[in-house]
Amino acid sequence: MADEHPPLEHVERGLRATRILAIRRLLTDKGVITVAEVDDIIERARERTPADGAKVVARAWVDDAYKARLLTNARSAVAELGYRLSHDAELAVVENTADVHHLVVCTLCSCYPTSLLGPPPDWYKSFAYRQRAVVEPRAVLREFGLALAGRVRVAVVDSTADVRYLVLPRRPSGTENMAEDALAELVTRDSMIGVAAARLPR
């Protein structure tokens, strides 16, 4: 059904785009997936934005019992807030503390908690990030503006398989009296990937 494919010349012809379109054409021509299924997956990913993940983090900051559930059974904990994960990937949440800082990478492709954060940023999919995050995470963090003390243990999480990881960033000091909605405003996408801390309150 060649008619269903957008003409290639309408798409930016970078190497990656060309490769993706070639793979998609093979998969659809061979009947492995349909164009409609691909569109549906993209559409569902776009329904979510980092503001959704931020609501989960803010709830965990104000509710210790919720945080405990989130860290032990993330799927059911995010369902409490109305978020449904795709059926084919699990979710795990790792907590950043004064002692350990997690950052997430997928060295094999670009696995990402799309069901909660939406599509990943381009840099997350770049070869540079995927290689360097695991070899020299502290240098990568410095480039993102986060200088960690040497006593803080860095734990790189490589999501190679069926589990997507969300980082629970540290709650900034000076936010003790803030309401959950205002706290969520401090939670950035990058802080949930682990390449940054949450924003400080104004």
């Binding site: 695991v134 070899v135 502290r138 860095v154 734990a155 790189v156 490589d158 190679t160 398989a161 589990v163």
Partner: peptide
């Protein structure tokens, strides 16, 4: 599927410039 913890200094040897306690967690 297991989450396995490796010490970064075991993985990269002297190439690794970080703290001895740093780790990489890989699902295997």
């Amino acid at each position: 599927l297991c989450q396995v913890e490796f010490r970064q200094t075991d993985v990269w040897g002297k190439r690794y410039r970080g703290a001895d306690a740093d780790v990489v967690l890989v699902d295997m």
